[in-house]
Nucleic acid binder design. Structure first.
Lengths: 110, 110
DNA sequence: TGGCTTTTTGGCTATATTGCCAAATATGGA
DNA sequence: TCCATATTTGGCAATATAGCCAAAAAGCCA
């Protein structure tokens, strides 16, 4: 196995792993209906707020969701519409991360 | 959240979780090309045979792969063609498990 | 039978994940 | 400013996961 292939597999695995939890899967489905704040999701899931917040952090770090702080609340939404077309979505996430990285790189040398 | 929804989410999560590892993702892709025995995969992955065997067990228990013992070797293959159409695949796996369960139930009462 | 190959299992350690509580942080409003 | 609300962070304990080695199990062939 090549090193580049390993890295690619690890990147995919990171995203898929982030989806591999019932509460996070629920969050993804719910965000498929529209943006939600942390307490909304917490009420639906029925766990501690801090737990839900950490799940959201996992999803954010995997590049699956985006957050938007408005006033007191933080609204989360899907970064890419993942639910129906998943493996394509893994690629979309990776691609948009690559885009972001190259934007960042371009910004730094500007 | 309803109990049935929870169970459904947990079932999905189990399958996705099984895919959330680089070596297992590699195995899935490789099996997408055709059946492979354990040593074939082990050589490609470059880990201990026992490690690869355990990854295959995880995939098997998740309903992602099937095994077929022929003589000395065990050949693994995908149970459903997952790679392109993933979320549909989650459902296919679940459905085929349901089918299997109802077959089993029918068998037991026969 | 005995030896070789292939695969699985048991056991162990290291590491990661999950979930809670408590505390910190941030924001808006009285 | 002070308080209430919303969210995140730190810390901890319980549990799960990953990887290796050694050993067991199963099949083939001489």
């Amino acid at each position: 196995m090549y090193q580049t292939q390993k890295a690619h597999l690890a990147a995919r695995a990171r995203i898929i792993k982030a989806m591999g939890h019932p509460s996070r899967l629920f969050i993804i489905e719910e965000l498929g209906r529209g943006e939600r704040c942390v307490l909304d999701l917490t009420a639906m899931i029925g766990a501690d707020v801090s737990t839900v917040s950490k799940h959201l952090t996992v999803l954010k770090q995997a590049g699956i969701v985006l957050d938007d702080k408005r006033g007191n609340q933080v609204f989360y939404r899907l970064r890419v519409p993942c639910i129906l077309n998943f493996f394509g979505c893994v690629e979309s996430v990776l691609e948009s991360q690559r885009r972001e990285h190259s934007e960042l790189a371009a910004y730094c040398t500007r």
